[in-house]
Design a protein around this nucleic acid. Structure first.
Lengths: 167, 167
DNA sequence: TTAAACTTTCAATAATTATTGAAAGTTTAT
DNA sequence: ATAAACTTTCAATAATTATTGAAAGTTTAA
């Protein structure tokens, strides 16, 4: 497999995987492109490489910056803006996990808490609703807390203690 | 908050959260409805409650069965089919995690492995592609393995050892 | 075997989401 | 202050994804 083929394969796979971490295709592809680039890229570079419009590029770069995984860099002697992404996978994972938690999981936990706190009127269906949403609330909250804790560990938790302890 | 309001809120929240675990709205809503129901429901029941068509209900029930989280149950004296979902959250989480791993994560790991294994032609860009996809490959593989291990623990790992060890 | 009861399929359509591109906005150099 | 270089916005449009509903298929009871 040649460089270009490998690159295309990586970008398109990463792009279609966007859904898994809750972002759209173009956004994921831009991030992927920056991730394997040896130097910061301009909007022009990105549009050209991915064959997407200026508007699309602009909007998605903005979103990536909102997520905190892409930053503008100033290239001396150049007027236009250049962009890079976080290059450390560990840190990338941390930021993504944190954002997803904040944007999607936390609001759901809140709803589950509200729903599971309704007054028990003694009927079977109410009891079931309370019981099941409470269970979901606990699971979601615990899992979210755990992921956040894991991700905050600065060291490589994966290959270290946690992983081994679980066996 | 009354029962009906709480129920609607739960179903719609869970439905819109479908994306987070990679399924569509109707599918998530059907599962949510079954999850808080005190007894198995027929296709008719589901269509009526969620106000969705027969075809839609049929297709999504099928998908839920493919995922292994909904099963047909025979109700004696009834001709039509009834459905229930896995009621234990722990087990539900296990099944979902496993399916997502199989359907989405594993194929990506494979691509990352292929891409990171291209021949190093000595150029900077090839080196960077290899380095970065290798890092991503390792992270993804480790995270996937860890989640699968965690989910396979029969007991409540969340509130037990793992969680505490991380601090 | 027939027909009623029920489920599945799938082409058509609707709803949603992503993308474009050109106009408006901003920044910088002179 | 002007204009060139660049970025952002957003209404229009395209692409994708979900949903419908009716016809075809299946099962069961008699």
């Amino acid at each position: 497999m040649e460089y270009q083929e490998a690159k295309d394969k990586f970008i398109s796979t990463w792009g279609s995987l966007g859904t898994l971490w809750g972002i759209n295709k173009a956004m994921a592809q831009i991030q992927a492109l920056l991730f394997i680039s040896t130097k910061p890229l301009s909007m022009e570079d990105i549009m050209e490489d991915l064959k997407i419009s200026r508007g699309n590029t602009s909007m998605n770069l903005r979103q990536l910056m909102d997520w905190g995984i892409v930053t503008k860099v100033l290239v001396s002697g150049e007027r236009k803006e250049f962009f890079t992404t976080e290059k450390d996978v560990q840190e990338l994972a941390r930021v993504i996990a944190k954002e997803r938690s904040r944007r999607e999981i936390k609001p759901v936990i809140k709803v589950l808490d509200e729903v599971s706190s309704i007054k028990d009127d003694g009927t079977e269906k109410t009891k079931e609703l309370i019981k099941q949403t409470k269970a979901l609330h606990n699971l979601t909250q615990d899992a979210d807390a755990m992921i956040n804790k894991l991700m905050d560990q600065k060291q490589n938790w994966l290959t270290k203690s946690v992983f081994k302890l679980i066996k």
